[in-house]
């Protein structure tokens, strides 16, 4: 029988939807699912996790050391909590990517990154080479399976009426003093979150400036969409780094993705492979983005984007 521990990701007292995606992956693996919530005040977050379909139990660990989610603090505690579990999962977000390899090393086991398909309880498919190849890997029988879950590959588990029991625990693990949180600089935005949004509009180098990005925001607001960007647009300083979509940015799976003035480099395409419908607006009819776009529109974005925003009424 598999026993699966999912490390909850949360922010400002809210469970991150990436956790519900891990639950879907865990259900595919099959077995008893426990969610671990480490926080200074875990109760409300634990209650949210308890309602997710498939979750059998929630373990809440309250500790002021967890006011910020620092891998150096979380890892020794997760390593203790992991005892008795066959699997430990976390989302492949910057939170999970930072944390889980540290846990795996403490447990002395390998880690599977970006789990996208389950072929068996220890057999998984993951992308390599910017998603240009998929590899099937198997975790040796005697090892705990430690894996980050590629969130774009999994739907969010629904929240049901039935709540799983929440158990409050303290964990006996030495916490280091060598790592201290200083600040988090976060652009406050009323727009949907890029990683979970159903619609995303992204702009590329062609926008030319942060002022010009205004037309992207206007289209996004009309669509109720989140806003993303190519690396080139981030490097040029038009938008903050947390908006980068791609191999080394965010991997997303919206129902609708609109790429504006983005050429379609493989590193960018990796981030949108799982989008439902891709729309591309580009003045170059030969741009590689049109190879993957469901709908392509050739022309000047500075004319077409405002026109599209207008047409959406």
């Amino acid at each position: 029988m598999n026993t699966i521990l999912i490390v909850a990701e949360h922010h400002a007292g809210q469970l991150n939807p990436a956790t519900a995606r891990c639950v879907s992956c865990a259900r595919k693996i099959g077995g008893e699912i426990t969610v671990a919530v480490l926080a200074d005040a875990p109760a409300a977050i634990a209650a949210q996790a308890a309602t997710l379909d498939g979750v059998g139990r929630v373990v809440a660990v309250a500790d002021t050391a967890h006011t910020q989610a620092l891998a150096a603090m979380y890892a020794p505690q997760i390593a203790v909590l992991a005892r008795g579990f066959t699997h430990v999962l976390a989302p492949s977000t910057t939170f999970g990517k930072d944390l889980l390899p540290r846990v795996a090393a403490l447990l002395g086991v390998a880690q599977v990154s970006d789990l996208m398909q389950v072929e068996g309880p220890r057999r998984f498919v993951r992308p390599i080479y910017a998603g240009n190849a998929l590899v099937t890997v198997e975790v040796p029988q005697e090892q705990t399976v430690v894996a980050t879950v590629r969130t774009a590959s999994w739907p969010e588990a629904a929240a049901g009426a039935q709540a799983a029991p929440v158990e409050t625990r303290s964990v006996d693990a030495a916490l280091p003093k060598h790592t201290r949180f200083v600040t988090l600089q976060s652009a406050k935005s009323e727009r949907p979150d890029l990683q979970s949004a159903g619609r995303v509009v992204s702009g590329g180098r062609a926008l030319g400036s942060s002022e010009n990005f205004r037309i992207i925001y206007q289209l996004a607001d009309k669509l109720g969409a989140a806003v993303g960007a190519s690396r080139a647009a981030v490097d040029a300083g038009y938008v903050p780094s947390d908006m980068q979509v791609g191999q080394t940015g965010k991997i997303i799976a919206p129902a609708l993705y609109v790429a504006v003035g983005i050429s379609g480099a493989i590193q960018h395409l990796t981030g949108i492979k799982d989008a439902g419908t891709i729309v591309a607006i580009n003045k170059d009819a030969e741009a590689p983005i049109f190879e993957v776009a469901d709908y392509g529109l050739v022309g000047d974005l500075f004319k077409l984007v405002p026109e599209l925003t207008q047409a959406l009424g």
Binding site: D98, F181, V182, S186
Partner: peptide
């Protein structure tokens, strides 16, 4: 300073 999903996080480490 670290590029995280929520923005830019700064840590101090020994």
């Amino acid at each position: 300073t670290r590029e995280v999903d929520a923005g830019l996080e700064t840590l101090e480490v020994d």
